[in-house]
Simulated scan of single mutants.
Amino acid sequence: MAMTRRDFIHFSGLATLGLALACDGEEAPAPEPQPSAPSALWFYVGTYTSGGSEGIYLCKLDLATGGLERVGVTPGVVDPSYLLLDAKGQHLYAVNELVEFEGQPSGAVSAFSIHPQSRALTFINQRASRGGAPCHLELDAQNAFLLVSNYVGGNVAVLPLQTGGGLGTAVELQQHEGSGPHPNQTSPHAHQARLDAANRHVLVSDLGTDKIMVYRFDAARGALTPAPTPFFATAPGAGPRHLTFHPNGRVVFSINELNSTVTALAYDPELGTLKELQTLSTLPEGFTGQSYCADIHVSPDGRFLYGSNRGHDSLVVFAIGPDGALTLVEHATGGIHWPRNFALDPTGAFLLVANQRGNDILALRRDERTGRLTPVGQPLAIPAPTCLAFAPAAS
């Protein structure tokens, strides 16, 4: 039987103990030095080439200063507006936000391998997303299937991953139906699919129908089946766009684009059901202008929730209580201009914002005690940035 990593660690520990006993009290050898913490992290930037960019950018964040540096670019990738890396940082996947691909009403998804040292991208292949304007990607826990949300298509497709990281043809397609009262809700608009920690259920935010759809996920075949309770209905005209799980796996936070709110939901991981706990505005009291929510993330420690407002041009910060209840901390506004997407670095020290209309990336230092955000350094100029994806630290 092959020895697992856990078996190896256990065996090594016993061997070391035996050696120490055999040496009759002699000093055990000093432990091997642990790798030092990284001084910088690399990240990729998705963009709109139709907005003047060159493709997918590779950049670096200095963890001491918050300084940002552009390292390189992979040109010729059309409208790679959302990016996703696999857990090992060996492959990157990008949507191509098109409404026609290979003569069909579809966008596309592109697969790339990542060089382990330079982190440069090498194109592998490209497949149809099976719906127009793909806008989000999600990998299952086994790294076997990629879920694609198609905004114009109003559906979710599942693409198998091939040996070597390439993409196969879609094996599943779930078409949504319906509409909502807002002018932007004349048809379904699937905006994000998220798998739970058990790899059992998929929650799909449909901005056009005011529903969070719930599917059972077959990890062996990539199939999606509507759950016994097939959806959670938001307030009419809310427009659920993105959601995120709390680290405890039992609370979900949904950010609603059209009515600028965030909803805390109790999640039952066995049944896949959602129950509203609280809904709050993401905007300051008294604000009367137009604004549209975009992205949402929980801090690594599970204590703070962050959401982006396009129009008010801010990041809203909430403290998360033990039961998932939210309390407003602040609206961070300095240097923020149409924040399409943002990302917390894996250490939790910095938050980076993709200012789509500001044509730059802004770094903000995060106070881990209060959750508050403070801009640092100079913004990094990138045309029409839409998505940020951190690469794992080099081994």
Rank of each mutant, 00 (worst) to 15 (best):
290 Q>D: 15
8 F>Q: 15
198 A>W: 06
358 G>K: 00
203 L>G: 05
104 Q>V: 06
188 P>I: 01
319 A>I: 02
353 V>S: 02
314 S>M: 05
101 F>V: 06
30 A>T: 14
101 F>D: 05
32 E>R: 14
232 F>T: 01
373 L>E: 04
148 V>A: 07
71 V>F: 09
83 L>W: 12
115 H>P: 00
211 K>E: 12
103 G>M: 05
376 V>S: 11
73 V>D: 05
18 G>H: 14
181 P>I: 05
346 P>T: 09
54 E>C: 12
298 V>Q: 08
371 G>T: 09
26 E>C: 15
73 V>C: 13
14 L>A: 14
264 A>W: 02
123 F>R: 11
148 V>H: 05
88 K>R: 10
304 F>N: 07
22 A>V: 12
44 Y>F: 14
335 G>P: 08
278 Q>L: 06
140 D>I: 04
288 T>C: 13
201 H>S: 11
114 I>R: 02
289 G>P: 12
258 L>W: 03
207 L>A: 00
116 P>D: 00
342 F>M: 05
31 P>S: 04
290 Q>E: 15
183 P>Y: 07
389 A>V: 10
146 L>G: 00
111 A>M: 04
227 A>N: 05
269 P>W: 08
60 K>P: 08
382 I>D: 03
18 G>W: 15
248 N>P: 12
250 R>N: 14
391 A>V: 07
184 N>W: 11
344 L>D: 02
210 D>P: 03
213 M>C: 10
292 Y>P: 07
163 T>Q: 14
20 A>H: 12
194 R>F: 06
